[in-house]
Write a protein that binds this DNA or RNA. Structure first.
Lengths: 239, 239
DNA sequence: CGGAATTTTGACCAGTTGGAAAAATGTTAG
DNA sequence: CTAACATTTTTCCAACTGGTCAAAATTCCG
């Protein structure tokens, strides 16, 4: 299993109730907060890791601080010393997640050829589903709830990125290198098919059964998806 | 908006604290429970509808009886008169959901030709995503949590159905009517791409923007998916 | 109508939840 | 070492949670 993954992004609000100078500083936007101590960084990471575990399964409302604290191996008040409230933990997770989430699509290169580009985009997304299923589920959970906590990021950052890449694809279509179709729905279908292996993992495993449900399923999925996106399901004379 | 959808399946445990004869009957498996009154049927439906609304957004743990009762327009104790506990409501929803869920795949006809069959399967699933997004999200929520409450149904009923249809597809492939590929992942990709429009609706709408995010998105999706599953993304000489 | 059965309400309860306060215990720079 | 700071624990709280119970209100049916 890969390391914690969701890294600490953001300037990070310092722990509450620091000494008076800092408390004052908090009200004074020009003073930069004292840098985090080693313990602060470590503990925050432990907490975020635990929170990822819990939020990704139960969603925001369904997760409890107690639960997260237990997974993190500390007491609830101790956890609340590092993150003054539940929302704060979730916010941090989502902010880090979004970055991770956009990265693979960002890498799609307008100067490359469509099929290698799309193929490796699919591979990267599939690898993320395999290596970071909890992140995928956290994201899915937020979506199911109507994305109340990240809707602006979706509407701005994500939309801009997709708009940009859609244009790239339209360019490829104009050059005759890619079938003329709807680039937005094309991107949706890549998201859907790849994230499915993280979000619906139980189902995938149950349906494939014990023999085919092992780690090999990701390779099978990769092969299948490559064929789907390349040629669809129309039989072709082999050669 | 379509009608309540998730219909009342299952023999339905009668309300608690009925008169003594019935209370006795409950312990005596041979006596059939008194049939439901009109009010019981109506109120149960109202409750299930409200529960669908709430569970589909917040998941099992995140949803509260109070919340459901409020949406249902009744007091919590009143609701608990019809469903003695939270799990009971959820169980009923899931049981009805599973039936609805399997239906479209069941309709896939081994004697038909693959492309019409697959095409109309995709259409039906897409229509379900459009008309019953809450059911889709309820299902997705359960999956994200590891399907604790329906895992056996997935492992038995769903698996059997998929196994059966996978064989049908293999038959088509043997006849050369369908590209030789993995039928299980093929089915997964249909589920993923269609349900995406219900489960990730916010994202889809946000990315498409106000102009393209209207109801027309389902038609666009249908067109795109048809092309994807038929020919993939390889450009073809038009004719 | 009138009595029996059903439905609804209001008061209540024990356990959980997110969080605050402060005391107790480290840790570290001078 | 010790004062200043950082961390942890203990105690506590009000709001919320799932659920009970008896009494009141309503509906049903002969």
């Amino acid at each position: 299993m890969p390391p914690t993954k969701v890294k600490s992004a953001e300037p990070t609000a310092a722990p509450k109730r620091q000494h008076k100078a800092d408390a004052k500083a908090a009200t004074h936007p020009h003073v930069k907060p004292r840098p985090l101590t080693r313990i602060q960084r470590e503990k925050q990471d432990v907490i975020l890791e635990a929170a990822l575990e819990v939020f990704s399964v139960h969603g925001f409302r369904g997760a409890t601080i107690d639960q997260i604290a237990e997974v993190a191996g500390m007491s609830k008040p101790n956890l609340l010393y590092y993150f003054p409230r539940k929302e704060e933990i979730h916010r941090r997770l989502m902010a880090a997640l979004l970055e991770t989430w956009l990265a693979p699509l960002q890498e799609m290169d307008a100067d490359g050829d469509p099929f290698p580009e799309i193929r490796s985009y699919i591979r990267r997304k599939l690898e993320m589903a395999r290596d970071f299923p909890r992140e995928s589920r956290l994201f899915a959970n937020e979506m199911l709830q109507g994305a109340p906590r990240i809707i602006e990021m979706i509407e701005v950052d994500l939309k801009n990125l997709v708009d940009e890449k859609a244009k790239v694809m339209l360019g490829w279509m104009d050059e005759g290198k890619l079938a003329r179709t709807d680039p937005y729905h094309l991107i949706f279908s890549i998201w859907a098919t790849t994230q499915h292996y993280a979000d619906f993992d139980v189902q995938v495993r149950a349906v494939l059964g014990p023999d085919r449900g092992g780690e090999g399923r990701f390779e099978d999925a990769a092969r299948y998806l490559e064929q789907l996106f390349l040629h669809g399901l129309t039989p072709r004379p082999k050669g």
